[in-house]
């Protein structure tokens, strides 16, 4: 029964050896959680953790508020001019704010072995990644979308533009979170990955920036913003279908 050589000492417990008397085979059975339950818990876990350390939660929002409110000071307090600049200011702020939080998306989970447990859970890693990205959007994208109309009003935009701005930032940040999740997963194994993450994520985010700013501009002018909004939604849907798959694959590579 000697199968091999080499420096490694081998052990051969015979398969047919009388093992310890085995109890009923269903002793190893337990009620498994389905994929939806698993994704729900992964989402809740991230929300729970975020509310335990609120400092990280406020960071992107504070950044967004600061950037957008510094513009009037730097350019001019003239409302007509600010109104023209508002879409660009809003979107650059939202893009950078969302990017800021991205670094934390998987980092802690990678350090403490949570990602490893996710990858070995027998559940769909894609579904778990989607849940994590959804949590990220709820914690950064959604608050940014809710804040954007306030900032817009402070830049002299009429309140009639509020629904359009809210909607475009909300949909746009979904796409940003999803694009970002791929970058965050790809840069997992790298120390101080912030710069690389921006380099990877920003070019892919440009379509969102362009269509988002366009939608906001149309909303401010009271025109129909259906066209850019549809394109934003298309980007978000493309992200929903592809990004979790890519993120899951990248996470598996980083775990090796």
């Amino acid at each position: 029964m000697s199968r091999s050589e080499g420096t490694v000492a081998q052990a051969f417990p015979s398969i047919d050896a009388p093992a310890v008397p085995v109890a009923a085979s269903n002793a190893l059975a337990f009620p498994r959680a389905d994929a939806r339950e698993a994704a729900r818990l992964a989402l809740l876990r991230d929300l729970h953790l975020a509310f335990r350390k609120r400092g990280q939660l406020v960071q992107p929002l504070a950044f967004f508020a600061m950037v957008t409110l510094l513009f009037p000071l730097a350019i001019s307090p003239e409302l007509a001019r600010l109104r023209e600049l508002a879409p660009g200011v809003l979107w650059v702020g939202a893009l950078l704010g969302s990017l800021l939080a991205l670094e934390f998306l998987f980092r802690d989970d990678a350090y403490d072995g949570t990602l490893e447990q996710y990858a070995l859970s027998g559940q769909s890693l894609t579904a778990l990644m989607f849940a994590k990205t959804l949590a990220h959007w709820l914690l950064t994208g959604l608050p940014l979308a809710l804040m954007a109309p306030l900032v817009a009003i402070s830049l002299g935009v009429a309140t009639t533009a509020v629904p359009g701005i809210l909607l475009s930032v909300a949909i746009g940040t979904v796409a940003l979170s999803l694009i970002g999740s791929i970058g965050a997963a790809l840069t997992l194994g790298i120390k101080r990955s912030g710069a690389l993450l921006s380099l990877l994520t920003l070019p892919l985010s440009l379509p969102v920036l362009i269509f988002g700013a366009r939608a906001t501009q149309l909303a401010i002018h009271g025109a129909s913003l259906v066209a850019p909004l549809e394109l934003l939604a298309a980007l978000a849907i493309l992200g929903v279908t592809l990004a979790p798959l890519a993120a899951a694959a990248a996470v598996r590579i980083s775990l090796e």
Binding site: R32, E37, L49, K53, D112, Q117, G122
Partner: peptide
């Protein structure tokens, strides 16, 4: 699989940790 570091979140309690960690696999 149990690695040499326990896969626990420092900000959660043991009960909460198990609720999420194990709950992902079983009811």
């Amino acid at each position: 699989y149990l690695g040499h570091e326990a896969p626990l979140k420092a900000d959660l309690t043991p009960r909460e940790n198990l609720h999420y960690w194990i709950g992902i696999r079983r009811r």
